[in-house]
Simulated scan of single mutants.
Amino acid sequence: MPLDYLAILLVIWSAQASWFVDLRRAIALALAVSLAFLFARPLAWGEAFELSSWALFSMFNVFAAVMMTLVRREQVARLKLERSNRQLETARDMLSEAARQAETMRLDALREAPVLAEPLTDKEREILRLAASGCSNRMIAELLHNSEGTIKNHFSNILGKLGVRDRTAAVVRALGSGLLDEGR
């Protein structure tokens, strides 16, 4: 086998070794192959020993091993990124579906607003309007010149009439069913 072909095969082997061992071992193998080639050339082919050509050959083997290691790492990173992207897309689709279902449930609950056994008083509707605008019980009490306890009592009555457990649900129910519209 001609010497040039053997050198090419050794470089290819050095590059492929990085697929099977870590970078440090691949470099050590590349240098070992280069060293073996250094001693084999004078013995097998009768060529003179040239340190500069051996150094160049060794560096090329190391370069091949490093480049293939980088290619392998890039491929692994790309695969991980693609897997992460698929997982994110799946999570996004699941969240989108959950949001769609939650919105459907919310709209169904608003459509199925209970028929009030007892209608809301004007004062209760005013309290709900203020709560819907973001006012706290204390702020509502100050605006309507009542005590905070009185506002809490009104909210208890409102919750019972609307069949809900908290003020947020009361506001949502009232807004969705049009109870806060004027004249109702």
Rank of each mutant, 00 (worst) to 15 (best):
R24K: 10
R25P: 00
I27G: 02
I27L: 12
A28F: 04
A28G: 07
A28V: 07
L29G: 09
A30R: 00
A30L: 01
A30T: 00
L31C: 09
A32K: 01
S34C: 03
L35V: 09
A36N: 04
F37Q: 10
F37K: 03
L38W: 10
F39M: 05
R41L: 11
L43I: 10
G46C: 08
G46R: 07
A48V: 11
A48L: 06
L51P: 05
L51W: 06
S52L: 15
S52C: 02
S53T: 06
S53E: 14
A55N: 05
A55C: 03
F57D: 04
S58E: 00
S58L: 04
N61S: 11
M67K: 07
M67T: 12
M67E: 06
M67A: 15
V71D: 15
V71R: 15
R72N: 12
R72G: 03
E74Y: 11
R78S: 10
R78K: 08
K80W: 05
K80E: 14
L81A: 14
E82H: 11
R83C: 05
S84N: 13
S84F: 10
N85S: 07
N85D: 05
E89W: 04
T90P: 05
D93L: 12
S96D: 11
A98M: 08
A99Q: 14
A99I: 10
A99K: 15
A99T: 06
Q101C: 04
L110W: 07
R111T: 04
R111C: 12
E112W: 03
E112Q: 13
A113N: 03
A117Q: 09
E118P: 02
P119A: 03
D122P: 09
E124F: 02
E126F: 02
R129K: 07
R129H: 04
S133L: 13
N137L: 07
R138H: 10
M139T: 09
A141F: 05
E142C: 08
E142A: 12
L143N: 06
H145E: 14
S147Y: 00
T150L: 05
S156G: 11
L159R: 08
G160N: 14
K161H: 07
L162Q: 00
G163V: 01
R165F: 03
D166N: 12
R167N: 05
